Simulated scan of single mutants.
Amino acid sequence: MPSAGDDFRDRVKGLVEKVIREKGLSQKYRVEVEYPSPHGSAIREQGRKVDIAVLVLSDKDEPRPYLFLECKWQAGRGTAEDKIFRAAEEARRDRLLGVHSVVVLGGEGFGPKMRRWALTEGFVHERFLEAWLEEFFNQ
């Protein structure tokens, strides 16, 4: 049985695919779930799977990561607030290594201070994700 976090990730994936399709970019990009990051983890010395990866397709080379989206869902108060600090570090590292990266927040469980902090760190709330994606893929 899928969790609320899995449902959230699937909704985000669907929105990414919709924006790519509507912008006529389906031949250029492919969307994958649970993509093994070539960068590993910024915090722990081990592998890491990114919730959603947008890969650039090329006739000559293997598809390469273009955009990583980490999905953080929190229905009520809990441990996800602790986990978003690690997600911020992972996104920062991805960007330094040449892959656009953003953390998407969902649910009502993040407190106002945490949401404010996350938005100043470049996170995107699910309510604004479609507009963010449309602007990101504006070419």
Rank of each mutant, 00 (worst) to 15 (best):
A88Y: 06
E34F: 02
E62P: 11
S37M: 12
R21V: 15
K13F: 00
P112A: 09
R48P: 03
E34M: 05
E62Q: 10
N138Y: 05
V31P: 00
I20Q: 06
L96A: 09
F8E: 05
R64E: 09
Y66F: 13
L15G: 11
G98P: 13
V104M: 08
F136N: 13
E126L: 09
R127V: 00
A75P: 01
R77I: 11
R127D: 12
Y66N: 03
L55C: 11
P36Q: 08
D7A: 03
R11Y: 02
G40H: 14
K113D: 14
G76W: 00
V12N: 07
M1I: 04
E134S: 02
R44I: 13
G111A: 02
L57F: 06
M1N: 07
G76D: 10
V99F: 05
Q139N: 08
F68P: 08
R92Y: 07
D82C: 03
R30H: 01
L119V: 09
F123I: 00
I43L: 06
W73A: 13
V54R: 09
W73D: 10
S58M: 05
E135W: 11
L129W: 13
Q74L: 15
K83E: 09
R77G: 05
D59L: 10
V102M: 11
G122P: 02
V19A: 12
S37D: 10
G122C: 08
P2L: 07
T120P: 04
P65F: 05
D7E: 08
S101V: 12
A91R: 06
E45L: 08
A118K: 00
K23L: 13
K72W: 03
V56R: 14
E126K: 11
